[in-house]
């Protein structure tokens, strides 16, 4: 298998996902198949090739240092699952 169950769990933790035990094996199989497929890329010689991260051929896109205010705090907090009208509230960060 391209990837171990332990690795699947580690990745899940990195991604802040909690996997039920039954799913771990399923994902392991699926990931292994997918990663196996991706091995294809090893066939190509890319030694001198400059990576292309985005097809946008733009450079130096800026904005001026100006302050603009569109929305007030109420709107920013509108969708907050837990708030006191001032802060976003979460369980205590140790």
């Amino acid at each position: 298998m391209k990837i171990t169950k332990e690795e699947v769990k580690q990745i899940a933790t990195l991604a802040r996902l909690k996997l039920p035990e039954e799913k771990v094996e399923i994902y392991q199989k699926q990931f292994s198949a997918i990663l196996d497929y991706m091995e294809k890329l090893k066939e190509i010689d890319t030694k001198e090739v400059n990576p292309l991260y985005s097809p946008a051929e733009l450079k130096n896109v800026f904005r001026e240092d100006e302050v603009k205010k569109d929305l007030d705090r109420e709107e920013i907090l509108k969708n907050a699952p837990k708030t006191d009208g001032e802060f976003f509230i979460v369980p205590k960060i140790i």
């Binding site: 904005r63 205010k69 929305l71 920013i76 001032e86 802060f87």
Partner: peptide, 30 residues
């Protein structure tokens, strides 16, 4: 384009971009 002013009331110097709302994008301050 939110203000950087210090000492404001909580969450008053915010907007969808700096609060990471869905669909927003960054634009660099020159």
């Amino acid at each position: 384009s939110c203000s950087t002013s210090f000492g404001q009331e909580p969450n008053k110097n915010t907007c969808p971009v700096c609060t990471g709302m869905p669909g927003v994008l960054p634009v660099l301050n020159k």
